[in-house]
Simulated assay, not measured.
Amino acid sequence: MITYPTMPSKASIAITAPSSGVENELHHLVKEAVARFEEKGHRVTCGDTVWTQEKAKAASAAVRAEELNRFLSDSTTDVIIPPWGGELLIEILEHIDYEKINRKWLLGYSDTSLLLLAVTLNTGIATAHGTNAVDLRGKETDETTAKWENALSTNAGDSIKQYSSFYYQKEWQFDNPTPWIFHLTEETKWKTVSGQAEQVKGRLLGGCIDVISHLIGTKLGDVKRSRETYLRGDSILWYFENCELSTTDLRRNLVQMKMAGWFDGCSGILFGRSAANTPVEGYTAEDVYEELAEELGIPVIYDIDCGHVPPQITLINGAYAEVSVKEGKGEIVQHFKK
C-alpha cells in the first residue's frame, strides 16, 4: 500500500541538491527562500551541496547521495526540497538507501522528478511533484503554487481538491521578478484530445518525461511490480511534462514506455504545458497526443498546470486522483488512499 508523510504546521525543511547546486552569484535566491520559510515558522537546514556547482552538478554523486541519505533517514526532517532541478540526478539513484528512508515528503520537479518516481515505485512512499525551493522566495505565492502546503499537510485517508490556474507564465523574466516570482499573463486552458469534457481517475505517477524515461529497463523502474505491491492493482493515471524534447523525441520516449509495459493498466494520461513542443516537419505535440490516445484507447488531457511553464498544481505520486476537464477548466481531487 501507499504510505503518506504528513507535514506539520511548523515543519523542519531540508534543502539539499541531489542534482544541481546554486552558483555563488545566485546564492541570494536560496537565502530569500529560506527567509520566506522561516517567516511562516518553518525550520530550515541547508546542506553543503546547495552552495556549490561545477561541471553540471552540485558535487560528486557520492557526496550528493550521502547528504540526501542523511536527510532521508533523519527522523526530525519533515520535508526535503531541492533548490531546483538540474541535469545529472540519475547518478545518485544507485547510491540511495531506499530501505532506510524515514517517511517524509520529497517535493520538486524537473530532474528531481526522477528521484520522486524512483522513491515511490520502490518504497511505496508518496512523493510530491510541484514547486521547488527558489520559486517560493516571493513576497507572495500565487494561488495554484501555494497549494503545496495544503497538499503536504493532508492526512492519509483525506482528500485535497485543486483547480486549474487562471493564468500561466509564457516566458521566464529572471531579471524582473513579480511579488510572486512568476509573470502570469496567458489564459490557462486545459484541453482534451477528444475536444469534449473528460473525466478520468487512477493512481498518479509521473514527472519530467526527459528524465523519468531513463528508469525503463532498470530495477528501479519496475512499474508492474510497484502497481501490484503498493498501488493495490489500481489503474495508473500518468502525468508527464516535457522540458527539452522535440516532438519526435517525445514520441520515441512514449513508444518506449508503451513497449516496456508502463501503460498497462493505464486509465489516462495528463500532459503539462511545454515550451519545448517544437514541431518536426509539421509533426506537432497534438499529433503525438492524438496518436497515443488512439493507440491506448484512453483519454488524454493536455496543457495542464504541471512542469516548466508555471504555475504548478501539486501532484502526489501514489495518490488516487479524479480529474475532470470541461470548457478549458480543470479540477483534480486527490484521495490519500492507502
Rank of each mutant, 00 (worst) to 15 (best):
E94C: 15
I160F: 10
S165L: 00
D305F: 01
N277T: 13
V323F: 03
E187T: 04
I298D: 02
I80F: 12
G330D: 06
L93H: 13
W180I: 01
V325H: 08
V63A: 15
E322R: 06
P310C: 01
T178V: 05
Y163A: 13
Y4N: 03
S110K: 03
P177M: 07
G265H: 04
W172N: 13
T131V: 13
N253P: 01
Y320C: 12
G318F: 02
C46D: 04
C208I: 01
E327F: 09
V200N: 04
N155E: 14
T185I: 09
A293R: 09
G217T: 11
D249H: 03
I301G: 11
V300P: 11
I90T: 07
I96S: 14
V288K: 15
P8K: 05
L204A: 02
E143C: 04
L292Q: 11
F37V: 10
T178I: 03
T248S: 11
T127E: 06
L115W: 12
L215V: 14
S235A: 15
L68E: 07
A118H: 10
E23A: 14
I125F: 07
A276T: 08
E99P: 02
G130Q: 05
I304K: 14
L114I: 13
N122E: 07
V30P: 08
T6S: 10
S235L: 09
Y167T: 02
H214G: 13
H183G: 01
S9Y: 12
T52Q: 12
G206H: 14
G202V: 00
T229V: 01
V44K: 01
E290C: 10
K57E: 06
I212M: 05
H335G: 00
F182I: 02
